[in-house]
Structures are given as C-alpha cells and as structure tokens.
C-alpha cells in the first residue's frame, strides 16, 4: 500500500525533473505575472498608433498570449516538472492543431485574410432574406462575383 502511495508523490518520483514541485510562493509569482501579462494585453489596445502600429500590436498580442499559454502549461499544469512523455503527448496535439489551423486559414477563400487589417466601412448592411423552408427556388447565392 505504502509503496503505491509513494509512487504518486512527486518528490520521490525519479522521472520528474527538478526534484519536487514548486512552492506556493512560486505559484503566486507565476499567477501575478499572468495577471500582469493580461493587463498588458488589454493595455496594448489603447495607445493611439498609426496603421503600421496595427501590425506591431497584432504581433505583440500573439507573442503575449503565447507566453501566457506557455506559462500556464509549463507551471500550472506542471509540464515543466513532469515526465517528458507528457510534454510529447501534448505537443503532438498542439503541433498538429496549430499547423492545421494555420493551413486552413490560408487555404480558405476568405473575403479578407482573418489576420489582416480590414478597410472601413466594413459591412454594408444587406437585406435579410432568409428563405422559408419550402421556398427552395428563391434561395440563391447572393454573393457578388
């Protein structure tokens, strides 16, 4: 019984790097830095910048959120301290998911690239014309070529 119990305990498990899980203080520091990054993210929105600044802001936002993502996964989810196998498992999903999302966004015939700044005015309101279910024939493609 006790033998199994010790297996569950991280401090004694040879597979875990770093020899033990972090202290509460460490968690608090991580949490505070997460709050700071989130505040930064929101803050990025507000200073008035030119068109060129848009790209800067997009890149900054992406970098910041990747950072947050990495911090939570590495420390809150213990991946940094845990067996590399688990990192591998998660990485398989993340890599394929990221690649697929990127490929999908680029291969779709988007009206505009989803990560590009849009021109204004954006969407002139068009007449709403949802067809009644039985009026099949009126249901035509409304998109101008």
């Amino acid at each position: 019984m006790s033998q199994h119990a010790s297996d569950l305990d991280f401090e004694h498990d040879g597979h875990h790097q770093g020899g033990g899980h972090p202290s509460v203080l460490f968690y608090n520091i991580i949490a505070i830095s997460l709050f700071v990054v989130t505040a930064l993210e929101v803050g990025v929105l507000y200073p008035p910048l030119s068109e060129a600044g848009t790209y800067f802001r997009v890149i900054l936002l992406i970098v910041l959120s990747i950072g947050k993502f990495a911090i939570v996964v590495a420390f809150f989810m213990h991946l940094f301290f845990d067996a590399p196998l688990l990192t591998f498992l998660f990485a398989v999903g993340m890599v394929i998911a990221t690649g697929t999302v990127a490929a999908l966004i680029n291969v779709m015939p988007a009206a505009e690239h989803p990560l590009q700044p849009r021109g204004k005015p954006k969407h002139p309101p068009v007449e709403s014309a949802t067809p009644a279910p039985h009026a099949l024939l009126e249901w035509k493609n409304q998109r101008p070529s």
């Binding site: 697929t100 291969v107 779709m108 015939p109 949802t130 249901w139």
Partner: peptide, 23 residues
Amino acid sequence: YATNFFNPMKGGLPIWWQHLFWV
C-alpha cells in the same frame, strides 16, 4: 437551430465543410 455556418445566403461557405470534413 438555423445557424449559418454553411448557409450561403448569410455568407456561410459550404467549402468550409469540405475542409473540415477532409481534415
């Protein structure tokens, strides 16, 4: 629920289904 994911009347793209389906 009459959403518009693949409804071309409302700007939905049927091709998106094909992409998801084949992914």
